[in-house]
């Protein structure tokens, strides 16, 4: 996979990230709706002059007509810091036929391209299992220019999904090191107990991040008959085994459990104003980016 396809790149050039509340401290090119500033390009409103305001923005016509000192205000434009969290646990590599991890890295690449094209700040954080003497994540430096995009694919290519899922520990460790909040996009299969993903997502919210959950599902997870009919299932993270025969009744039981799991995650996100988007490896990356993510509100056309 990858986004080297020129057709995909052309599609990405037409897109931008949709931001609701997040903003950075640095001026940038992302207009912040309902937020004004004393300087800028796009006129937004007037405000009563207060000492210290820049005289250059006094509206002399209003002073002549109304004999009031008012100054123009402009729509604020800020640089948005983006934090793309990628789950690199072992569950992202199975079932192998789904190629979930490759799919997820493609999405990360595409989002990175869009972010950098918009001159925003970007960091990619690979969430890993905690090990002694090492932080439970790998993170890129903050990239600010689209020319830096080409440092991203090698970083992603070097990642290998392995180990258990430690969303909570990894995100907490990252937040301890980062002061500037922004947009946090968590790309994961979320195949953990709700307590495992609720706490880190709420933590991000509490730290002022605009949180977006990108749920990657494999085609074989949605339809397990593609994978097997009967056999010994092996949990690559917990190393448990379970003999399963995929009868119609069992299949219905699985699908019900999957629906419950997805509904729980989705309801949690809605309840806590977290944007939730579900993508499947059945879909093509270009379809996901131009259709699924735009409809979900993560991306918008320029």
């Amino acid at each position: 996979m990858g986004i080297s396809d020129s057709a995909l790149l052309r599609q990405l050039d037409r897109l931008r990230m949709r931001v609701r509340t997040a903003r950075g401290l640095r001026p940038g090119e992302t207009p912040i709706p309902r937020t004004s500033q004393a300087w800028g390009i796009e006129f937004e409103s007037y405000k009563e002059y207060t000492p210290g305001d820049d005289f250059r923005y006094l509206d002399w016509h209003a002073l002549g007509r109304l004999d009031q000192l008012v100054v123009k205000t402009f729509t604020a434009e800020r640089e948005i810091p983006y934090h793309l969290f990628l789950d690199t646990s072992a569950s992202m590599r199975v079932p192998a036929i789904d190629q979930k991890f490759a799919f997820a890295t493609t999405l990360i690449e595409a989002l990175s391209y869009i972010v950098l094209a918009n001159n925003d700040t970007l960091r990619i954080i690979a969430l890993t299992a905690p090990e002694k003497g090492r932080l439970p994540f790998f993170a890129t430096p903050a990239f600010r220019h689209h020319a830096r995009f080409f440092r991203i694919p090698p970083f992603l290519a070097a990642l290998t999904p392995a180990g258990k899922t430690y969303l909570r520990e990894s995100i907490r460790a990252y937040l301890n090191q980062t002061k500037e909040p922004g947009v946090a996009i968590v790309v994961s299969d979320f195949l953990v107990e709700p307590s495992q993903y609720e706490e880190p997502l709420l933590l991000l919210r509490a730290r002022g991040y605009e949180v977006k959950a990108l749920h990657v599902l494999g085609a074989a997870e949605l339809s397990p008959t593609r994978l097997f009919r009967r056999g010994k299932l092996y949990d690559v993270e917990e190393h448990g085994e379970r003999w399963i025969t995929l009868t119609q009744a069992h299949l219905r039981q699985y699908e019900a459990a999957l629906r419950d799991h997805l509904a729980t995650l989705q309801q949690f996100c809605h309840r806590h104003h977290i944007l939730y988007a579900r993508v499947s490896t059945e879909q093509s990356p270009i379809q996901v980016i131009t259709d699924v993510l735009t409809r979900a509100g993560l991306l918008a056309f320029r």
């Binding site: 195949l191 097997f228 009967r230 949990d235 993270e237 085994e241 003999w243 039981q253 699985y254």
Partner: peptide
């Protein structure tokens, strides 16, 4: 032969059937 799955989280709802599978 083992069939690798990301998690047994969703399969806990399905009754294990070792005799029939073997």
């Amino acid at each position: 032969k083992r069939i690798e799955v990301p998690s047994l989280l969703l399969w806990r709802a399905v009754k294990e059937d070792s005799l029939r599978v073997r």
